[in-house]
Design a protein around this nucleic acid. Structure first.
Lengths: 226, 226
DNA sequence: AACTGGTTTATTGTATGCAGTATGGCAGAG
DNA sequence: CTCTGCCATACTGCATACAATAAACCAGTT
């Protein structure tokens, strides 16, 4: 949005986000939504003109997106939207699984009543969404659930890493299948219980199972490209 | 080919690294070595003048270092060398352990003869270093060993992440203790064997043990701050 | 003396300009 | 027709200039 941040209509004079952040979000959205397809070259000057900003914020946004895995940069050659290969997808999933298992374990270890309440709340909401067949909203609930576990683990860095990989995995698989079905959601309840009871080993095990099944569901579905 | 190296100080010809990368390395070295202590503000213009470059490469280097965890940036307020708290150290160790365990497992699963050979070579060299009491060199061998395992896992992203966290952990603990002693090295042999034999479960288990012991060794030593 | 208000200053955020390099096309030779 | 070398072009890397903002400072008032 905000294609032309002309003079005064720029968000806020006091709490305004930097152009770099805005450009970064905009480009990420375009990449995730498929407007900028994998392999497309990202020319700084072109994007700058299109977004009505200078090259500087565009350049920094591209660097940021490279760190997030959405863009690849070749020195002196320029940037391009990252290609998503099956191999890269597996690599990401491997990393995410490892991190998520630790998150579950720590969450079971360090959970606070507030953490447990939040998990239960998300769980309840998800159940309603499943019952209502609102699959689109369930995707959001799914993200929230995993994020809540990461939060409960009390490792800010881990939370950030997981969020990053989740976004990326969502992107990679977004062209392959609609995810977060009822069966995936059902597994969440057991995970929440293990965490609530402080059963670290079981939390680890259930998370690992959940993720490998989740991955299997991804891969088994036929492509439903946009 | 323009073979006119006008300015002699620039070590470029056709394979020159970008200034950004050079500045990044330089700053990282200064941070890790303690020349730039935690909490110190990093003012772009000051650093630019000191390194005889413009603000642009300095700025991008600082952003890079933020992603690596060496620097924290507050929007509109500037950057500073990251403070190293005990909590952050534990968080890092937690993440690194999780990643390293997966790396060991995958290495045991996908190892090639070349991987095994390299592990054995590093192991042999390390043994010699231990025998000779060359502890400084052993630190390097230690890094190489863990890096070789990551390589063998065949997940480039995992390798990069691990390298990043290893560097950071080395930094965090560098002011606390000299690490990589003989006892730590002895544990490597068993890890290499498990990987060589393709015993994934044992590779996982040994790695987990090795890292927790390693962490314990770190923490038990008295501070030898510079 | 403490507090509020404006003012100054240091530093980041953004824009623009310039130079060097990689790339694609074109011409000429084999 | 294919290959090799030159040349035009486009883009990045870096430098510099300007604008905006948050912190520090100072003065005036209560």
């Amino acid at each position: 949005m905000t294609a032309t941040p002309a003079a005064g209509d720029n968000l806020l004079g006091h709490r305004h986000r930097t152009l770099e952040a805005l450009v970064c979000d905009e480009l990420r959205n375009r990449i995730v939504s498929g407007v900028l397809p994998p392999g497309l070259r990202l020319v700084e000057s072109t994007l700058a003109e299109e977004l009505a900003v200078s090259r500087a914020p565009v350049r920094e946004a591209i660097r940021q997106l490279e760190h997030e895995g959405f863009v690849t940069i070749s020195p002196r050659r320029g940037a391009a939207v990252a290609e998503l290969s099956a191999e890269a997808a597996l690599d990401c999933y491997e990393i995410r699984s490892a991190l998520e298992v630790v998150a579950a374990k720590r969450a079971a270890q360090r959970r606070t009543p507030a953490d447990v309440a939040r998990l239960r709340q998300i769980l309840a909401m998800g159940n309603e969404l499943v019952a209502a067949g609102r699959w689109a909203d369930l995707v959001k609930a799914n993200t929230d659930f995993h994020e809540a576990i990461a939060d409960a683990a009390g490792n800010a860095e881990l939370t950030a890493l997981l969020a990053q990989y989740s976004r990326r995995i969502t992107w990679i698989f977004s062209r392959t299948a609609v995810h977060a079905g009822a069966d995936a959601w059902a597994e969440h309840a057991a995970m929440a219980t293990a965490i609530e009871q402080g059963d670290q080993a079981r939390a680890e095990e259930l998370t690992l199972q959940h993720l490998s099944r989740s991955q299997a569901r991804f891969e088994s579905r036929p492509s439903t490209a946009p």
